[in-house]
Design a protein around this nucleic acid. Structure first.
Lengths: 109, 109
DNA sequence: TCCATATGTAACCAATACGTTACATATCGA
DNA sequence: TCGATATGTAACGTATTGGTTACATATGGA
C-alpha cells in the first residue's frame, strides 16, 4: 500500500505508467524516448519503483524487456476507496461545511 | 496530486488521517495520544504533510488546534480513477492475462 | 498571578530519494 | 563475426524525509 501511493506520488512515474498502459509490451527504450529531460538510468530507476509496487510487470524478451501495466494494485486501492470512503461523502464530508459556516474568532492558519 | 499520494504513502499518516476523520475537530494532542512509538514532534511533522496536501484543514482555537479531515483531494483522485481507469478494467486489464497465457521462453525476472 | 497545558520552532542526524556519469553485459542482425 | 543495440550495475552527489532533543511561546484555569 505504501509503495503504490509513493510510486504514484511522482509525476514522472505517473507519466511512465500512462505510457506503459497505452503501449502494452513496450520496451524500456520505448519509454525512455518520451523523456529528454532525464537520463535513461533515471527512467529505469522509476521503472524499478513502479515494478516494486507491482504497478508494472516486466519480462525479458531477448535483449528487450517488455513492460506491462498491472491494474491490480490500483484496483485494490479503488476498492478501498469505495468501501472506506464512499459512505463517508454523505455523512462526514460536512466537516468543511461546518468550518466554513462557523468561523472561529481566531483566523485560520 | 504528488503531495496527496506522497502523504498517503506512509502508514503513520494514513493512521492519522483515519483518526482525524473519525474525530472531527480533535486537537493535535488527541492525535498524539495514539502514538507512543514516535514523538509529538514527529506526529506534528506528519500533520504538516497532510495539511500541505490539503488532506487536513486546521484552525487555532485558543491554545488548541482543531483538525478536520478534508475529503476533497481524495474525492478528486477518486474521480480521476473513475474517468481515467474505469473503462480500462474492461479493455486493458487483459495485459496480465496475456502474459500469463503466453509465457516467454526466458524466465520473467 | 502563576503553574499547567498545548502548541510551535530550531537544530541535528541517519536514511532515503532522485538525479548523474562510467562501465559492463547480453542480444541482435548485417 | 563484430559492431550496434538494449539493458544492467556501481558509484557518486545533492536534496529531502522522518525521526530526535531542546527550547520557546501562547493560552487556560485554579
Amino acid at each position: 500500500m505504501d509503495s503504490v501511493f509513493l510510486a504514484l506520488g511522482h509525476q514522472t512515474r505517473r507519466k511512465i505508467l500512462d505510457i506503459v498502459k497505452s503501449m502494452p509490451g513496450c520496451s524500456v527504450a520505448d519509454v525512455v524516448k518520451y523523456f529528454d529531460d532525464i537520463s535513461r538510468i533515471a527512467v529505469m530507476k522509476h521503472l524499478d519503483v513502479l515494478e516494486a509496487a507491482d504497478l508494472i510487470v516486466s519480462r525479458k524478451q531477448g535483449r528487450r524487456r517488455e513492460l506491462f501495466f498491472n491494474a491490480v494494485p490500483i484496483q485494490m486501492i479503488y476498492d478501498r476507496w469505495t468501501t472506506e470512503y464512499s459512505r463517508f461523502w454523505a455523512s462526514r464530508a460536512l466537516d468543511l461545511k461546518y468550518l466554513l459556516e462557523n468561523p472561529s474568532e481566531s483566523a485560520e492558519t
